[in-house]
Computed example of a mutant assay.
Amino acid sequence: MKLKTLLLAATVVAGTLSLSAQAADTRLIRFGYGLNQDSNQGRAAQVFADEVARLSDGKMKIRAIGAAALGSDIQMQQALIGGAQEMMVGSTATLVGITPEMAMWDTPFLFNSGEEADKVLDGRAGQMLIDKLEEKGLVGLVYWENGFRNLTNSQRPVTRLEDFDGLKLRVMQNNVFLETFQRLGANAVPLPFSELFTALETKTVDGQENPYNTILSSKFYEVQKYLSITNHVYSPWIVTASKKWWDSLSADERDVLMQAAIASRDFERQDTRKEADEALAQLKADGMQVNEVAPEEVERMRETIKPVNEQIKQDVGAAVWQAVQNQLKAIRQGTDKPRG
């Protein structure tokens, strides 16, 4: 009986040591993001985690932590630079204070479609900006999609440039957005998002601009009649890693993370666009009057806000600005060649 007890104890100890060895062999990676687990960010983070586990045969494990539990985008970016956190996904706009060239993606009316954005972000121009992160302590892997912003208001459809005249529009507390809509003829009013629904309901402002998903989830259709598809700004997210941590990885580990990031990117874009299409259909069903702005009117708007773009060009540098514009021209002429 005593021998059996000793054998059982030895088996338990051996099993515990084996599990400890397995745990020690597993690389745990914290991956932070701002939205909730059931959001497009959360779903794509899970795809990333699953792919990392699969490609590494379980030797690398992503711990996806959402709802800004690790801090805001800016706080997480600083944690990555300091080496206190491994990975995250967040807005390119919040990287502008670290890498000014990222302001390129804030340019109004830059892209005509998601497909154009994909080619530029995944191509030479997008890589040029990713490369600039390394000198600031970050490694960029891939761009995800937040989406296009569109216009709603309670007064009239916006089908041409002149329809902006006199509209009181809430905009983000951001100089680019303020100047853009002022130059288009609107009365741009900076307001916190938390105050927006009440401002629309009380007619303090006539309208606002946001992606379809936000318009739906915030129930703006209850206080807004018109939705004009302007696609005036395309907002990307970017998957980044701490350079201090990245430099400690083997080439194989980096390859696993890059392959998994590409898989998550492709899933996330498809998922986000599907969600946007469903949101637009629901907004129509909820009674919003929807109109598309014709390409020739978009071009007139581009011409009107040229001074805004000139300032962005100065901020990001002529080389970055021209690289993006050259690639867009090639895409629109059908002469763009994939990177690689």
Rank of each mutant, 00 (worst) to 15 (best):
A49M: 09
Q327E: 11
P236L: 04
V256F: 01
L138N: 03
N291T: 04
G185H: 02
V52N: 03
M104D: 09
V12T: 08
A9S: 08
N153G: 08
G340P: 08
F197A: 08
V189Y: 07
I229M: 05
L133T: 03
V96A: 02
E297M: 05
K284V: 00
R27W: 10
Y33F: 06
L227A: 00
N210F: 14
T202P: 09
E268C: 12
A263C: 12
E222A: 04
V293G: 01
S20C: 15
R170F: 10
R265S: 07
G114Q: 11
F48A: 00
K243E: 09
A323C: 00
I229Y: 05
S264A: 12
F177D: 15
T99H: 02
T240Q: 12
K337D: 08
P295M: 00
M288V: 01
V171W: 03
A294P: 00
F220L: 12
V189N: 11
V256K: 00
F109L: 00
G97L: 07
E268F: 10
E222P: 01
D286G: 04
V239Y: 09
A45E: 00
N153S: 07
D277E: 09
A294G: 08
A64C: 09
E101A: 11
Q311A: 09
V13Y: 05
G126K: 05
G34R: 03
G83D: 06
D247E: 13
K2F: 14
F177P: 13
I29H: 02
Q77N: 13
I262D: 06
A318N: 10
D122Q: 09
T99M: 06
S72E: 02
Y221G: 01
A285N: 02
S194Q: 05
P295D: 07
I81F: 09
N291F: 00
N187C: 12
M76R: 01
V89R: 13
D266K: 03
F197T: 14
E296I: 14
